[in-house]
Design a protein around this nucleic acid. Structure first.
Length: 567
RNA sequence: UGACCCAUGGUGUAACGGCAGCACAAGAGAUUUUGGUUCUCUCGGCCCAGGUUCGAAUCCUGGUGGGUCAACCA
């Protein structure tokens, strides 16, 4: 307790973001008796992505911070685009991120009867009318941002006629697109949203929850605010593009005369080297540029999960990026920082060689094998140690040897000594090349038996330490090396007649076979490892006992190849 | 050019009228049986012009720049 107190005092609390300030103001002023109730309101028409994660963490985080509640509500007002497949994936993703809506799972479709009643109220107040114009006519008469629109000739229909027509719309007497219900507001409003927006359209479509019960469906604008009101949401947090809709929502709420939630808009998340729009992600999936929504290159939650990101790392990311109203583009390296930080602490180490070259230790007895020991995670002693077999013939990375090394090359080269991690110090004596291609087939070394890891002589200074795998015990694994999906920082910044797809990275996936130490056979699906000196890897669900598949989550920071690239 | 919104290092985000700070990125060094981690340090910012004030990143006015809005999508 005492210790906690000290920590609290020492730890400078993060300053409030603008939403927290608003909420604390409201609490201070006794708005809603200090109650805080948020909601996450996705449309079930696609998979959630990292941008949604920002919203989810915001909504659930705020409620948690202020001892409030958060609802999960599906805004399912367009049966043509929505499906239970998406409902299921969204629930899975929210849960995986670590949030719980408890018994508060709702659907806008739960409120269809109530929303219909709201429409009837507006009609009776002469605030809504049935309009017979075609979509084209409506578009033509809407005006432009600088020119007022024209009023519909149906705007003056009597309450009785509107009531009759709207009721008959509900009962399926008219085909799709023949009539709509519109609000009667102001066709000359400088805010386009207020120019008699459509409230209800006729859609003879099967709804994933209400089935064929309805053939008219409310527009999002006529359902969203009321849904928040019905759920007595105190703070309706949404993205910036709904800012101009707020006056409309307020108008509905006021005219209908129901509980008033407070809408607060924040800037959505953008990230470098990826796209975030549902439409574009759908395109990538449908046209086969990626292997489904959960392709590890996708910015979707399920993609990130499969890639090997952890919920903690994503939650931490959304905390670090902050919340504000200005447009922003987050550098993807920040996301990478978050997963590295997380996995450095929690992923056990393993040695695996991705691009092998054979090492033969000439002075090591031919048939000898020994078991060496190494810590599983130097950042977490509680993870214990493991045994690693060592023998005369080993694999190391081809990149860890150079015949004519530059100045700063700390690895193996003719006549040079390096340490084999957790094993011995070896010295390169000579190399055997393919006589035709000149490719190195074998590197012959000698080892110093007195430098076994842990022995006094092992503390001898050598320039570098290499990871390695004993050939005989090596386990072949499939490794999927993922890189950023796009080669351009902003794929939406298109030149000429190109499309965002012209900036796809042709090398975003490379599949290779690698050799790992035998410990690898214990790897379970979704388990994370650090392949020593290479990167963090996650066991893919495609894995079988015969064929383990590892996804590269992110490479380790690497100041060597970085320095080389600069040259 | 109508309404609404936004403007702080390369990126993101603080400051609530009183010394512009933090994180990522970038660069240098130390430590290291991972060229990882860790630890130092460096680089670099208030869109512009007026006004209010003893004092302005902060308040006001006007510019400039950017974004959103003209689906029977959400």
């Amino acid at each position: 307790m005492e210790e906690l107190k000290i920590q609290d005092e020492e730890k400078e609390p993060r300053s409030l973001n603008f939403i927290e300030e608003i909420i604390e103001d409201d609490i201070r002023n006794g708005v809603n008796e200090g109650r805080v109730h948020t909601r996450f309101p996705p449309e079930p028409n696609g998979y959630l992505h990292i941008g949604h994660a920002k919203s989810i963490c915001l909504n659930f985080g705020l409620a948690k911070k202020y001892q409030g509640k958060t609802n999960l509500r599906f805004d399912d007002t367009n049966p043509v685009k929505e499906d239970t497949e998406y409902v299921d994936s969204i629930m899975e993703d929210v849960k995986w991120l670590g949030f719980d809506w408890e018994d508060r799972l709702f659907y806008a479709s739960d409120y269809f009867e109530q929303i219909f009643e709201y429409a009837m109220i507006l009609i009776r107040k002469e605030k809504a009318y049935v309009c017979d114009m075609t979509a084209e006519e409506m578009s033509e008469t809407r005006g432009t941002p600088t020119r007022p629109g024209k009023e519909s000739p149906f705007r003056t229909r009597s309450v009785e006629e509107n009531l009759d027509l709207f009721t008959r719309m509900r009962h399926g007497e008219f085909p799709d697109g023949t009539r709509v219900l519109r609000a009667r507001i102001d066709m000359a409003s400088p805010n386009m949203q207020m120019r008699d927006p459509v409230l209800y359209r006729i859609l003879h479509a099967h709804h994933h929850r209400t089935g064929d019960q309805w053939c008219i469906y409310p527009m999002y604008d006529f359902a969203h605010g009321q849904s928040d009101s019905i759920e007595r949401i105190t703070h309706s947090i949404c993205t910036l593009e709904f800012e101009v809709h707020r006056p409309l929502y307020d108008w509905f709420i006021r005219e209908i005369g129901i509980y008033v939630p407070r809408q607060i808009e924040f800037a959505r998340l953008n990230m470098t080297y990826t796209v975030m729009s549902k439409r574009k992600l759908l395109e990538l999936v449908q046209e086969g540029y990626v292997n489904g929504w959960d392709d590890p290159r996708m910015p979707t939650i399920c993609g990130l999960r499969r890639r090997g990101f952890t919920p903690e790392s994503i939650r931490n990311f959304t905390e670090i990026i902050g919340v504000a109203k200005r447009d922003n583009v987050i550098d993807v390296s920040l996301l990478e920082f978050c997963i590295r930080e997380n996995l450095n602490k929690h992923a056990n180490r393993l040695m695996a060689v991705l691009n092998p070259v054979k090492i033969i230790i000439d002075n090591y007895p031919d048939d000898q094998e020994e078991e060496l020991e190494s810590v599983n995670n130097p950042e977490d002693e509680s993870q214990g140690k493991r045994k690693i077999p060592f023998s005369k013939t080993l694999f190391i990375e081809r990149e860890d040897f150079m015949e004519e090394p530059p100045n700063k090359f700390f690895r193996l080269a003719p006549g040079r000594e390096v340490r084999l991690k957790a094993a011995y110090i070896i010295k390169c004596e000579n190399v055997v090349k393919d006589p035709i291609t000149g490719i190195i087939n074998e590197i012959h070394c000698t080892y110093d038996p007195m430098t076994k890891s842990g022995m006094p002589d092992s503390s001898r200074k050598v320039k570098g330490t290499l990871h390695w795998v004993s050939e005989k015990q090596a386990v072949k694994i499939e490794v999927r090396l993922y890189d950023r999906l796009f080669i351009k920082e902003n794929p939406d910044d298109i030149e000429g007649d190109k499309t965002f797809k012209d900036y796809l990275n042709p090398d975003s996936l490379k599949v290779i076979t690698a050799f790992a130490e035998p410990e690898v056979i214990n790897a379970k699906i979704y388990e994370k490892y650090q392949f020593e000196r290479i990167g963090y890897f996650s066991v893919d669900k495609d894995s079988t006992p015969q064929n383990l598949v590892f996804n590269r989550v992110v490479p380790l920071k690497d100041s060597w190849t970085k320095a080389e690239k600069v040259k």
